[in-house]
């Protein structure tokens, strides 16, 4: 059994493109996509926090272009990400909330 596993592991390492690797790859992609989704609001918030540093001489027209530019960019990236993410398939929060002991009472 362990021998079989070992073979499968080494094979998948050597020949990327085989079916099992493909699966792993897609899982990996999905995880990274979700990382991206999580990061998006943080990035947006940081970018939108930049105006706090502006001096009073900044022109409103520039500010409008900057703020709306971020807006359009965020919406666009969110749209691309949302297209590829599968809400139902992913059963998430894999690293957090692993603490089951609290349920034991």
């Amino acid at each position: 059994m362990s021998d079989l596993d070992g073979k499968a592991g080494s094979k998948s390492e050597r020949t990327p493109g085989r079916a099992p690797v493909f699966l792993e790859r897609s899982t990996y992609r999905r995880r990274r996509l979700i990382d991206g989704l999580r990061m998006l609001p943080v990035v947006g918030a940081l970018l939108w926090a930049v105006p706090m540093l502006w001096s009073e001489t900044a022109a409103t027209s520039t500010a409008i272009l900057y703020i709306f530019g971020i807006w359009a960019g965020l919406a666009l990236i969110a749209a691309v990400m949302a297209r590829h993410v599968d809400v139902q398939a992913y059963d998430p929060d894999q690293n957090s909330n692993r603490d089951v002991s609290e349920t034991d009472m």
Partner: peptide
């Protein structure tokens, strides 16, 4: 107050974009 009104829309935008959270 100039562009301050945008804050009222930026907050929900961030929440929506961060829907995964």
């Amino acid at each position: 107050s100039g562009l301050e009104y945008l804050t009222i829309y930026i907050g929900p935008t961030l929440v929506m974009v961060g829907w995964w959270w």
